[in-house]
Design a protein around this nucleic acid. Structure first.
Lengths: 95, 95
DNA sequence: TATAATTGGTTAATATTATTAACTTGTTTA
DNA sequence: TAAACAAGTTAATAATATTAACCAATTATA
């Protein structure tokens, strides 16, 4: 009944990051910072975890001479997100 | 946009406990143990946290000479759950 | 009728996670 | 050229969750 919730996604900040990524091609690190209000260090670490899990791809480039980190979600990430949402629904639509 | 998720509810086990409670009058400790497969100690601690937050009431009685712990959700707990679910939806129905 | 096993938990210790604070590398501004 | 800023990273710390050991009482068992 209460399936386990993927701990990689059951984290407010990582869930927000993945949530943003599932509906857009690529997102910049700085954009995530603005949307989530989280500290850069925290974001950096959560991105690394998502990357290590193969849920997202990280691409480093430059924009106006400044480093720029672009994120995109992988197929594996999309599937993990969908599965997480399905499991979660049993918790939040109880009975 | 991405509202903070009440950390008291954003925990798999506590969420399962509250999820069970929102649809029933009272639930036994042992029932929660069976449904969630969690260890008794873990449940005990999470119950205490929910109780300290005023989200649930805990009633200790006896059944067949054995101790029995009955849980029920408070108004505050119901409201917290509803608010949590509303906030969470923005994460899991992205765009 | 001791004693071993079970019920129904609690608490202290530990492991895991998340968050922050300090640092780095390079860039622009004064 | 020194100070401030951009865009991060990493090491240290704080917060959480989980387990392992314990306790008190009850029931089964040899």
């Amino acid at each position: 009944m209460y399936e386990d919730l993927d701990p990689l996604l059951h984290s407010q900040l990582r869930l927000a990051i993945v949530s943003m990524l599932v509906t857009s091609e690529k997102i910049e690190f700085t954009h995530i910072k603005e949307e989530t209000k989280a500290a850069a260090g925290n974001i950096s670490i959560q991105i690394k975890k998502l990357q290590e899990a193969g849920y997202i791809d990280v691409e480093k480039t430059f924009k106006n001479n400044y480093p720029k980190t672009l994120l995109s979600i992988t197929d594996k990430g999309v599937k993990a997100f969908e599965s997480y949402v399905n499991n979660l629904k049993k918790y939040i639509n109880p009975k």
